[in-house]
Design a protein around this nucleic acid. Structure first.
Lengths: 165, 165
DNA sequence: ATAGTTGCAAAACATTTGCAAAGTT
DNA sequence: AACTTTGCAAATGTTTTGCAACTAT
């Protein structure tokens, strides 16, 4: 389920916060109001975000949290297996990992939307490829880029309007 | 063959330089000694590189080329369908696209090596996924991360040595 | 002649780091 | 008390931009 974290696979029975507390203790780290607030906010909605968006959307009672703290917390969350991180157009993007099934993305370069999809076949393919190269897999990143349905449709609409002239 | 370029698919019968010249003309851009030198150097060996490595390895007669010029040339090469660009650990990495078969990568996080592999199955999978979402595909990025054979072996060797104590 | 290109330096970004003050265990 | 974390500002690393001088067409 969760890959590339440092606690290995654990069944989902704990809340993200409980899971993080486990991690904190296993690493002699400390729980702080900042980390707690960030974690709660991050898990309050299932969507993709980057550090900046996160900071901008922080609730008022968490507005005082410094940039560096946010960055530091995000890497802890990733390390704890709560979040998954990947690069998109040069910046880091995060999404829920803990308690969320493995999946990949379609990325619309018009509207920057990320659409999730799941494919067991891809995992099989990944294992087959790795086996051939004697490679030990810890994870992968598969992003299909293009134009999403919505953007295709609004483009077509625009084209039709022009054709009428 | 080549994806995400702006000239569409063209058969490989021209040298990279000729192909670039075509692009230059189609875009009312200009050929300069700097672009020519960079292009020649970039296509003199088939390997992955980033902007910095490229600049460092430039032959003496091209040493005077400014950073900005290199960056500007690289995006032209990408736009011309000569190079493919992707992000790795936060920076842009380039590889030959023109005249080179489509492939994906295994990325060793120990030694940062990129190993290429090709899979038709992956392309079929990509099309199938896109079809389901009514998505128009222009390309994809598939990177399998893990530890390569060489690094696995040297780790094992190290472990065995320790076990003997 | 016209418009694109160069090199430089400065700016822009995203992210990281050093450090003193504050907080957690 | 011991050690970690915070927020700030400064530093970093990579890529982009403004601009005057230059150059390809």
């Amino acid at each position: 389920m969760s890959e590339e974290n440092s606690l290995g696979s654990v069944e989902v029975s704990l809340s993200p916060l409980q899971r993080f507390e486990e991690y904190i203790q296993s690493r002699r780290k400390r729980m702080t109001p900042q980390k707690k607030q960030l974690l709660e906010h991050v898990f309050s909605r299932h969507e993709h975000f980057d550090a900046d968006t996160l900071i901008d959307n922080l609730p008022d009672d968490a507005k005082g949290i410094g940039r560096a703290t946010v960055y530091r917390a995000l890497s802890e969350f990733v390390d704890a297996g709560l979040l998954r991180e990947f690069q998109l157009d040069g910046r880091a993007v995060y999404e829920h990992d803990y308690g969320y099934p493995q999946h990949d993305h379609l990325y619309c370069k018009e509207c920057q939307k990320l659409i999730e999809f799941q494919s067991d076949e891809l995992i099989e393919l990944r294992e087959a490829v790795a086996r051939m190269s004697n490679f030990r897999v810890t994870g992968h990143r598969f992003i299909i880029t293009g134009v999403c349905e919505d953007c295709r449709m609004s483009k077509r609409r625009r084209r039709q309007r022009l054709d009428m002239i």
